[in-house]
Computed example of a mutant assay.
Amino acid sequence: MLPTGRSSSVAWATKTRREIRETGTADGSVVVVPVGSIEQHGHHLPVATDTLLADAVAHHGAERAGGDVPLLVTPPVWTGFSPHHTSLGGTLTLELEDLLAILEQVADNALENDFDGVCFVNGHGGNASIIDNAVSTVGKSSPR
């Protein structure tokens, strides 16, 4: 599940439900959501480059801050908004509204697990405005 050599100390996917809830109920808890894309990156890089980089940055940063802040990193949202890359091959893209809905739902679910905040780590320029919109709407319908 995690790349070889990666610590699972902050990985949501390696935790039990009790461990997730314990982290979430701690004061100042944050869930980190890496957001990437699957698209061409020339002839020399894998199509998951944006996802791999966002995930690596999220985990590295979380592991460095983990002693000071209760946090967990979700598995990455691996597909983003990349319709401008489809003609080049290898692209898997979502519609703008679908990606926004996924980000909102992931964030709202994290808040339902008692986390105090959500941090999106973006690995793809085409996702920026959608993530900005999600940040504006997350938690609006939540009773928190």
Score class of each variant (00 low, 15 high):
residue 71 L to G: 05
residue 14 T to V: 02
residue 57 V to F: 11
residue 121 V to Q: 00
residue 101 A to C: 01
residue 88 L to N: 04
residue 37 S to A: 14
residue 60 H to A: 15
residue 69 V to P: 09
residue 65 A to D: 06
residue 1 M to V: 05
residue 56 A to N: 10
residue 117 G to M: 11
residue 29 S to M: 03
residue 34 P to I: 04
residue 31 V to M: 14
residue 98 D to I: 14
residue 90 G to M: 08
residue 51 T to F: 02
residue 131 I to D: 02
residue 39 E to D: 11
residue 135 V to K: 07
residue 77 V to P: 06
residue 103 L to H: 09
residue 139 G to V: 03
residue 58 A to Q: 03
residue 38 I to N: 09
residue 104 E to T: 07
residue 79 T to E: 11
residue 86 T to A: 14
residue 84 H to R: 14
residue 81 F to I: 11
residue 87 S to M: 15
residue 89 G to T: 08
residue 90 G to R: 02
residue 57 V to H: 13
residue 75 P to L: 04
residue 3 P to V: 00
residue 144 R to N: 15
residue 89 G to N: 06
residue 70 P to R: 12
residue 12 W to M: 07
residue 41 H to R: 04
residue 127 N to Q: 08
residue 136 S to C: 02
residue 18 R to Q: 12
residue 99 L to C: 15
residue 23 T to S: 02
residue 30 V to N: 00
residue 127 N to W: 05
residue 35 V to R: 03
residue 25 T to M: 09
residue 94 L to C: 09
residue 39 E to S: 00
residue 135 V to F: 02
residue 56 A to Y: 08
residue 58 A to E: 01
residue 114 D to S: 13
residue 23 T to E: 07
residue 144 R to D: 14
residue 63 E to L: 12
residue 21 R to L: 15
residue 8 S to Y: 00
residue 99 L to F: 13
residue 50 D to R: 11
residue 34 P to D: 05
residue 121 V to I: 14
residue 40 Q to R: 14
residue 53 L to F: 04
residue 73 V to I: 05
residue 35 V to E: 11
residue 60 H to W: 12
residue 45 L to T: 03
residue 27 D to G: 11
residue 68 D to A: 15
